[in-house]
Amino acid sequence: MKKELPNDRRKFILSMARGVGLSAMGALIWSAYVDEVKAAPLILRPPGALDEPDFLKTCIKCGLCVEACPYDTLILAQPGDNNPIGTPFFVPRDVPCYMCDDIPCVPVCPTGALVQDSVTSEIEGELTWDITKMDMGLAVVDAESCIAFWGIQCDACYRACPLMDVAISLQYDKNERTGKHAFLKPVVHADACTGCGLCERACVTKKAAIYVLPNEVALGEVGDHYIKGWDKADEARLKDAKGETTVTDRSNRSAVDSLNDAEDLY
């Protein structure tokens, strides 16, 4: 019996170590894979979707929104699509979002990954669907391949836009090359664009010269250093503005001392 005791203990410790080791191995492989597949920066989500990290948390991948979509716009990501498996998205160049008045894809969501409040407005005291509030992405124009920027008349995207003159307007510029014609350049207004992709679908070039990108990709961010002093609403940002100070060797002395000190010059 005396001989068996350390053996048992050794066995126990070894089997524990084996369990821990195998778990760690499994967890590492698993988390590496999950981390890899959840990164899809160019994916376009259905109307009313939460921010991407919250959406990934909340979507249960049931496909009820896909079934509710009357135009087969929404599809569920399949293994091999290089998108987070099972989550709904759309490819506007294939099938854009036709911006239904009653937005059938949103209320069927059982988990709240598609938020009703984000696509409803109170009109005359009554909550009403308001598809123009939707913000799935932003249309971006590639001026190099857009033939309207060459001087050829084309307003396909402008006319396809469900918010014509609000989300896309035409800017008239003089065509200096011919001297007598006008450019009719499409300009997208980020605050109004819903990201529906009807413009991308309508674009006449081989590969669309106007295309929808997720807001996080398409938009920059000004930060606290610049504020529109002429805009009351923008000026309100000053309240929460955070300063940033860099500290170097030079900051040890006051600015005036530093400027008056001519020692280095001689």
Partner: peptide, 13 residues
């Protein structure tokens, strides 16, 4: 892993 990664981990695999 769901807690650590912030999404349903088994549902993705």
């Amino acid at each position: 892993l769901s807690a650590a990664m912030g999404l349903a981990a088994f549902e993705l695999i």
